[in-house]
Design a binder for these strands. Sequence first.
DNA 1: CCTGGGGCAGCCG
DNA 2: ACGGCTGCCCCAG
Length: 104
Amino acid sequence: MFLDDMTEFQSSVIKLVLKVPRGKVTTYKELAIALGRPRAYRAVANALAKNPHPIKIPCHRIVRSDSEIGGYQLGTIRKAKLLVEEGVEVRNKKVDLAKYMFHF
DNA sequence: CCTGGGGCAGCCG
DNA sequence: ACGGCTGCCCCAG
């Protein structure tokens, strides 16, 4: 499957992302912490940026710590749309973390 | 609200 | 193998 041809780091990031339920979000930083590399948030973002299956992998549920939805391979607009479809309200490119944040 | 500096896996020469 | 970039970032100032 898609977890094959990628590094350990990358696949471990993907696995965690798959745990985030619909209607919830988490941050790049949270993922880094969950991975035991609290300072690797930038690398986490990169891993998702190159993810080969943006459809099967809900990387749109990963937002920035400052509550901005952040970037997306297929366009920020698309990311916002996907979130809204899942029930996460997005206003001015921002989400209510206190309300939608998923904790590992 | 904007800015600089920090931090890290991947990619490329 | 080595070193210098480059990002779906973060946070203090």
